[in-house]
Design a protein around this nucleic acid. Sequence first.
RNA 1: GACUCCAUCGACUAAAGGUUAGGUCACAAGCCUUUCACGCUUGCAAUAGGGGUUCGAAUCCCCUUGGAGUCACCA
Length: 484
Amino acid sequence: MDIRVRFAPSPTGYLHVGGLRTALYNYLFAKHHNGKIILRIEDTDRTRLVEGATENLISSLAWAGIEFDEGPHVGGSFGPYIQSQRFAIYKEYCNQLIDNNSAYYAFDTSEELDEMRQRQQKAGIPPRYDRSIMKNQYTIGANNTKELLEANTPYVIRLRVPLENDIIFNDAIRGEVKVRGRDVDDQILLKSDGFPTYHLANVIDDHLMQISHVIRGEEWLPSTPKHVLLYRAFNWDAPQFAHLPLLLNKDKSKLSKRQGDVAVEDYIAKGYFKEAIVNFISLLGWNPTADREIFSIDELIKMFSLEKVNKAGAIFDLTKLNWVNSQYLRTKSMDDLADFLIPFLEKRNFNYINREYLKRVIDLIKERIDLVTELPDFAPYMFEKPKEFDQDFLAKHWKESTKEVLELYLEELRKLDDFSHPSLHNFTEQFISERNLKLRDVVHPLRIMITGRGVGAGMFETMEVLGKEECIERIESFLKMEGK
RNA sequence: GACUCCAUCGACUAAAGGUUAGGUCACAAGCCUUUCACGCUUGCAAUAGGGGUUCGAAUCCCCUUGGAGUCACCA
């Protein structure tokens, strides 16, 4: 069997990280089996369309490195891949269901349906369409149905669920799932505007597009029996289902916007590496059984298997994502990091001096940050003179004699030609040993004078990058200020 | 409420009936040291509870509890 999977988002805005994971698992599965992955846009709800959402989805997916074999942006022989362009197909197939009595016409207004649900709720029974008493082709008879249809009365088409039978299907992740027919609602398949619902469209498209595995979020599990019934009604083989565990908030509810960023573009904007996001998200709900945490996309593809996907939901924990990102930060070249960071800096009009200088600063700082984009805030002093000085650090390390010592140090420093960090180190060691001082008596004050801060990279490395002239200016200006 | 799914350290997870229940993040301590980090070492920390099955259960079965998802002319 050819492996064909699909990612089928609805274009209602941005790509959710949960959606990215679903797309990723589909991608890993397809690539692992040398199969195809298809992008299909599920836009059957015209009330929820968002301008530009499809382009947005595609660009976020592309950012993550997920390339589709077929889809609205790349074509393919099973198109169109946008459901709104396939409406005629759905209607035609839906008529087949009417003909073989798997579906039926219903004429209830939404008020009548509301009323029915309220009644049921009051009576303490689950709200479900009651086809024995509502207004449909069974209760009003064939002739009346025909008349209403001819009079262009608004109607919907509902799935006729066999009440007596159990619906059993196999899920690759959860095993056998069994639901009683009487617990399944007579789902609307074709809305009164003539558009299909998700349930109808997805079954028809998955069949026509020859999808072998439906890998989607667990939120679809409860409606899968309806889909199984539809495959049966069409006399089609159902694909293999695999329902992925959900991504969760800290409180274990389904990952939502209220509790943090959920849009992939938010993480892009913050400066996460795509490798880190892909690596991290892949390991939320699946693990290749190795005592490792960092995997390239090729390794993920090689190791992926649906059987090893977990059943329980996974909390989306930023702390570990940051760590994963920091691991990638360590391994990238300065050129790559500069290429990555410069657009971010330019966007905020940050003066990074020049590319070569920036590379040296990144090299200096990268072990102290998780995201490259933290660099300008972590070490603004590498790009302009400090305006503020950490008072706590100052109070702790600036002693009575410090000013005098540093004035002497400054005079000696002026004479130093080699401003490399080993040279600075030697020079300073010599300076302190001649005066019976500790290294910290000089280094800490230097740090505050030159950077304004109490934390940072090695002091001599920092000075080397800043350069002699700049360091001397900063020390002079601080001592002058201190003298006032 | 009904239906369905789920349950290993705080978090992500490993262990596919036989392990002192392992790793990673986080946290804590120590080492290193020039601040903060990195790195290294160590520590803390889990099979929800109860019954079975079995020589043997985190693992299989049942019950309880807990959590989640879904119950639209949304997807």
